[in-house]
Design a protein around this nucleic acid. Structure first.
Lengths: 350, 350
DNA sequence: TCTATGGTAGAAACCGATAACTATCCCTCC
DNA sequence: GGAGGGATAGTTATCGGTTTCTACCATAGA
């Protein structure tokens, strides 16, 4: 049975030292184990530590100049399997490196993002990992540049994960994945299967990921000599409802698309639902593909053909590269993506 | 453009004070705003702070006795929509209360759990929230009791979220949800719909949640005067594969069940897959229901009838009750659960 | 016997912010 | 004119662990 001390009376090193009949310094050395201490003395100190259930004060250590052993993960929203997978990667790598992981959310609010970064500066987080697509405009670049510099001044490192780089010369690490290439591969796959009228559902204007994916979509069309009807690129929020609504709008207008490329797997879930409601069979009548390869993808009916994004690895790399910084060349990585073929896409026979 | 200071040279309050030509104390008072400072002086200090891009050192503050503004969330695994929702609730409430949230995972390893708790004691987290089902044995109770006491000694509060209480007199807050009641309601619903041969798939022996749900399952049978064939309670892991495998095993043995109660929604996804592979129609031939109501539930085909667990509220309550402690009576809450009827269950016509 | 040497342990200072106390200044009122 | 008091700013000490420097003892070698 552990001692039933009253609340808030934590034993300090001095207490341990007193109980062991040595100085605080000796107790500290036993705890750290980086200095020779005579075995009998060490035993007495260890005894006292166990008796008092001593734990060091991390804040005192950090104040003394030691690293804080903390990395911070900042995301839009902790729900969403996309973020969850990245969080898992971050947490795992952090744990593997003996760090604890702070989790913060911004709900897409730049002001809150700035507030969170300020809080993390106060805590001297060793790395601050910002995750998720962002509006890639001048304001964004400026903000990230400012964050990078103030974090650097606080001895911490900014990591942009799945976000555009603020440009060279800015002290930040960027870990991205190949949006353009993934979209290209998927579009090429559909084109190779005979599809010529492919709708892209879920364009969020200005969002960096959207822009890159649409670029790949276009390039594949061009490379295959396929005409691209701009009216097939449909706006829509990155949500089930967004996917369903955009599909409803598209089908109200025209029903000649033979394939739908959903901006994300979640959007694809909405697309599938909307099509099912209209009696359209997938993949017999229309092929549907997604992007992300979240766990949901394989649970949909039919199981979703999609683009695999290495979320967990993204998180691990973010932590790894922030903590062990090599040559400057390593400050930007792009992880590969590839398509995963399941059951939601079929050849289109003219 | 922000100042391009070299790395690691953070300005201190003393630097600010020097630049403003005042004492550190005055600068501190301006920062805290809890003491009258003459407007011209305040302006000078604020100016200096902005010039130097000053941020306080949270560790110094914490060392001085202030609260650390940190709550910790400890879970088995950050993936899993179940945990993600709780994490969201915890993070939101923490943010609302001006706290940051530490995220740790244990992968179900008690040793790692102890190590994590020790780390959190070092950091003086204000609350340590342990989430997720646990083996409810004597060892568990002992461990939790020990955690509760040592955390209390460190001035922090243990919260058990969705876990059994270690008993009265232990300084811990328990936030649970009604497993037994939810399982009872769902079983009663199936029985009311004429089902008499209901399989329970996904028993993890010894796990507290499993035991409670099966208790509800039994009680409903008893109350409805329905015989319960013990061989219909099938073991299986809490995973898609577990659900699929258990279903395959069951169907290999007997095919007379008219309904399947899956231990969790994830298990239900596996059950649905296994049934689909066997050409069994849901809900026409067999009804399938789950437990948790994670987002996936409404994306399955057919949309899953399941038991709603208020995950996010669970997280919020955990933080709220740990931070504002009222009378001791509030140390244990049980949040309600209720069934959500969708499309995966239908009446059984004899 | 006296001095090098190594092995141990302790004392003082420091990290940065702040609580508690003290010291001014200046104005008011007796 | 001097005591009293409000408003403001500064001094000192403290939180707990670590770094750096110093002090001691014992044994070995001269």
């Amino acid at each position: 049975m552990p001692r039933r001390s009253g609340p808030g009376k934590r034993p300090t090193l001095a207490d341990v030292a007193a109980r062991a009949g040595v100085s605080a310094m000796t107790a500290s050395r036993v705890a750290a184990g980086n200095y020779p201490v005579a075995p009998p003395t060490r035993a007495k100190v260890l005894r006292a530590m166990r008796d008092l259930d001593y734990v060091a004060n991390a804040h005192a250590r950090a104040l003394g100049g030691a690293a804080t052993g903390t990395v911070a993960l900042v995301l839009d929203d902790a729900t969403g399997p996309f973020f969850a997978s990245i969080a898992r990667g971050v947490e795992r790598q952090a744990a593997a490196e003996g760090r604890l992981c702070l989790l913060c959310t911004t709900h897409g609010d730049p002001e809150r993002e700035a507030a969170v970064v300020a809080l993390l500066r106060e805590r001297r987080a060793e790395a601050v990992i910002l995750v998720g697509g962002a509006q890639d405009c001048a304001t964004y670049t400026e903000r990230m540049t400012a964050f990078a510099h103030s974090l650097e001044q606080s001895g911490s490192r900014l990591v942009l994960c799945g976000r555009p780089s603020p440009g060279p010369g800015v002290p930040a690490t960027v870990v991205e994945y190949d949006n353009e290439g993934g979209a290209y591969a998927m579009t090429a796959y559909l084109l190779d299967n005979g599809h010529r009228t492919i709708a892209y559902v879920g364009r969020e204007p200005g969002l960096s990921t959207t822009d890159e994916r649409i670029a790949g979509f276009r390039r594949a069309h061009a490379d295959h000599g396929a005409a691209l009807d701009e009216s097939l690129i449909r706006p829509g929020a990155f949500s089930r409802e967004g996917g369903a609504a955009a599909t409803a709008a598209l089908w109200a207008e025209r029903t000649d698309a033979t394939a739908v490329f959903a901006a994300t797997d979640i959007v694809a879930a909405g697309v599938l639902r909307a099509l099912r409601e209209r009696g359209v069979r997938v993949p017999e009548d229309v092929s549907v593909v997604g992007f992300d390869d979240i766990p949901l993808a394989s649970d949909l009916t039919p199981a979703l053909t999609t683009v695999r994004v290495p979320h967990e690895q993204l998180g691990r790399e973010a932590v790894r590269r922030a903590l062990h910084r090599g040559p400057e060349a390593d400050d930007r990585v792009v992880l590969g993506t590839h398509i995963v073929v399941r059951d939601s896409a079929a050849p289109h026979l003219p």
